[in-house]
Amino acid sequence: MPVHRVDTAVRAGLSFRVLHPLPHTPAPAVMSDSQRRSVMDTAAVERALARMAREVVERTGGTERLVLVGIHRRGVDLARWLADEIGRTEGVQVPTGSLDITLYRDDLMVVGPRPVVGRTELPDGGIDGQQVVIVDDVLYTGRTVRAALDELADFGRPRRILLCVLADRGGRELPIQADIVGAQVPVPEGGRVEVLVPGTDGSLGVEVVGGNG
């Protein structure tokens, strides 16, 4: 599927649900950052987030016992954004938290220690019996989400866990799917998706970088 079609569709406020994700092709080591294309601009991301916020509340049946937990780094910004959006529509400030999954990665001892970039901080009320929504920017192999599920389990037993991502690029290596998706973003071989958020990047958007497309 050519990328420009997704772009157009997303601008039109549509989102795609692909039940059978694209087969994953290994990324070559070198990619050119000069090939950078916007697939969602600020307005498109804002519309997607507004819809995702509504979907979260719809799926959880309101804001009762709802906790949004973002995965470092950009998932944390997106979780706060969603919480603010829910606050505007529902009039309730939903508690948010953050997870740094570095110490739970399954490749840690192979690739070597990574700098631990962020704190794991969960709301004071904990997550026992709560409806926890994991928020991340991009869903790819599913390994980050696997690590996040393991880490959450060490903090308690939520009643339910949902997964909410802004961009699903396919290429899963584990049987993990998102419940709420901003947009499906197909990526040409060797490319990657970058989500820009104001807190980290100074702007809001989704871009595809590199690849053969």
């Binding site: 290994p26 080591a29 192979v110 690739v111 220690p113 790819y140």
Partner: peptide, 21 residues
Amino acid sequence: LYLLSGGRAEQAEAVKQGGDP
């Protein structure tokens, strides 16, 4: 312990070839 326990360079390369999680 964490910082010393680093992986082996050649294995790291193999993982990168296979795609970063």
